[in-house]
Design a protein around this nucleic acid. Sequence first.
DNA 1: AACGTCCTCAACCGCTGTAGA
DNA 2: ATCTACAGCGGTTGAGGACGT
Length: 329
Amino acid sequence: MGRVPCCEKVGLKKGPWTPEEDLKLINYIQIHGPGNWRALPKNAGLQRCGKSCRLRWTNYLRPDIKRGRFSFEEEEIIIQLHSVMGNKWSAIAARLPGRTDNEIKNYWNTHIRKRLLRMGIDPVTHTQRLDLLDMSSILRSMIGNQSLLNLQGLLGAQALMNPDLLKLAATASLLSITNENPDLASQNLQVQNQVAPQVEFNQFQMPTHTPNVEGFSSSNMAANLSCSNSPLNSTPNNSYLGENLFLQQNQVDLLENPALNHSLNNANQNMSYDSVLPTPLSSPNQLNSSLSTHVHSNTEEERDSYCSDLFKFEIPESLEISDFFVLSH
DNA sequence: AACGTCCTCAACCGCTGTAGA
DNA sequence: ATCTACAGCGGTTGAGGACGT
């Protein structure tokens, strides 16, 4: 049927607001209050459409708006909320007093999103972009570890990676240990027999308990891959892929990071959606308390350099993923 | 200084949800 | 049940400033 435009385009001003227009709008709203936006421009003597007035007020002129650069705490909250809510800017803004959805959206697109991309993090899923992983380093660390778990880890990784690369990795792992430990090689061969047929036929199989939902697929696994410049990246644990990686890395994190341990315990004790979301009145770091100690640097470059812990937080398995989507759709 | 390119962010566009007639 | 007006939301645009050559 076609919607009637919110205003007649002819004769109405568009583009940047002048101080005089701002003054008129502020004065009118101070007397009459916000609302009735369609009638407001005419009553206030403005050559603008109501929608333009509303946006100018809500995004710029409102007295409770906080201007200026986002603080580190605000940035933490934005990233955490975005990882759960996605592009629900108004919902995110509701948890950041004084910030508008437009401002947060702009800040995300111009700063945070670009930084995540530079770090190899997918800004949509908040997971490490596996297509950017250095396969040679994966192979190298696997060969160095000579562990049965390496190959078992590939069972989980096959769902996410090029099957040919996985086969290559499995073969390299097997070859590396055959000479030094024939018994272990035999065990690994049995495991590889589980891998090889699937790889051979290019079957795509998600790990059984991983929710295959947009934005959450394999997030447990991938979110625990630290970025390339993380100190943790040099540890053997990070060379594992798949569910073994997830479990082992978590164990290391829990041992080495009391703050994360605490936050995970909290998350496991409170399985509701609310428990995952920081509130303006509570600590913003319920999820990843370790973040603050790393990300609170002064420059953009320093923020870049401390990336891993930000994406290492864990959504409890027993948390109902569907809850997120009830809320975010 | 001049020019081109990149970046930022205020503002706009188009769509959806909702309330009321 | 349908239509309309309105508010709100997310995506996109473009003017202007910053920066590099």
